[in-house]
Design a protein around this nucleic acid. Structure first.
Length: 317
DNA sequence: ATCTTGACCTGACAGC
DNA sequence: TGCTGTCAGGTCAAGA
């Protein structure tokens, strides 16, 4: 599974930013009320009939600006997906009908036709007929295109907020700096970790310190920086914090590069995994050899979260 | 103020 | 086969 974190959300954003602006929303169908929290009257007056003007991102939250003066905030959480299907064409079909997502041998023939663009947690829903049982909200555009918000576990959400109040919205108020922005400096990270007794991994997952890191990239960055995830934040040396700072930027940047290619192409049952996990350093690689030293990757719990480490590269003491 | 824990939710999978 | 239990994991709220 590939849970949407900052790189995945950024990849979806950049894909949708090429497709949605200029589109006008004709209708909204809410199949699960809690997936789109907005009064019925607001959906009618501020979404339906509005044009999309921009698609932005802050942390793991996507912001779709509308010409009505409102914005749609989207959090995919673990299992959310956004699938855009271009109008007037048949929906895409899985390559061979197999149930195994990685076994389709046909990765290129259907690539690049632009009929469907999808991103988020990968499942068969991205390639099969939509709507399906995980579809929670459907946006229909005037040209017949559709945008499906699918979410198996229904933790994800969309909400409608006045454009002028987006930055002050509750979900952004406590959000920390963008790790790929200029404000993310070593001294910032140092000040956030100082005097903190919590595990460094727990601190990295706290969105108020750095926005957008999740379980995958926290593990990846800590391994690259050679820091054990259970270490207390305050125990890290300046040098270790510098390594961690650089590692966060590198793993996020690498992943955006890897994900960018898989998103803009046609998504079929073969392509839904994304490229980054194939190159993961430790995530979901327990039992396999560390790419740096060959030691067997271990899986432990840190703050109730599954955590992957190389016991040789990442020492506790 | 900081830290920990449980709840939310569904599907996949292991074990009996 | 079919049941039960466990795991996945971002975020919030409640409790320590």
């Amino acid at each position: 599974m590939f849970v949407p974190e900052l790189p995945e959300v950024e990849t979806i954003r950049s894909g949708l930013a090429e497709l949605l602006p200029g589109q006008r929303i004709a209708g909204v169908e809410v199949l699960l009320n809690k997936s789109l929290s907005a009064p019925e009257s607001h959906i009618t007056t501020h979404i339906a009939g509005a044009g999309v003007t921009d698609v932005r991102r802050r942390g793991k939250i996507m912001i779709v600006d509308l010409s009505s003066g409102y914005s749609l905030l989207v959090h995919l959480k673990m299992t959310g997906q956004l699938v855009f299907e271009a109008g007037g064409q048949q929906p895409a079909k899985p390559g061979t009908g197999t149930n195994e997502p990685h076994s389709c041998p046909n990765p290129t023939s259907e690539t690049g036709d632009g009929r469907r663009v999808a991103g988020g947690h990968p499942t068969q829903s991205m390639a099969g007929d939509l709507p399906d049982k995980t579809t929670r909200v459907i946006f229909t555009f005037q040209d017949g295109s559709k945008l499906f918000f699918n979410d198996q576990r229904t933790f994800g959400w969309m909400k409608l907020v006045e454009r002028s109040k987006v930055e002050r919205d509750k979900c952004f108020m406590a959000m920390g700096v963008e790790p790929l922005g200029s404000q993310f400096e070593v001294c910032h990270l140092k000040s956030r970790l100082k005097h903190r007794k919590a595990a460094i991994k727990t601190l990295l997952l706290d969105q108020s310190h750095v926005a957008g890191l999740g379980n995958i990239y926290a593990d990846e960055a800590l391994h690259l920086a050679q820091v054990h995830p259970s270490r207390e934040g305050q125990s890290l040396s300046d040098e270790e914090i510098e390594r961690l700072h650089a590692a966060i930027i590198k793993v996020l940047g690498d992943s955006i590069q890897a994900g960018g290619t898989s998103f803009t192409s046609y998504v079929n049952a073969n392509g839904i995994t994304g490229d980054y996990l194939h190159n993961a350093r430790v995530y979901r690689r327990q039992g396999e050899p560390c790419r740096a030293c060959g030691t067997t990757i271990d899986k432990i719990k840190v703050g109730q979260r599954g955590t992957h480490i190389c016991p040789n590269c990442q020492k506790l003491t």
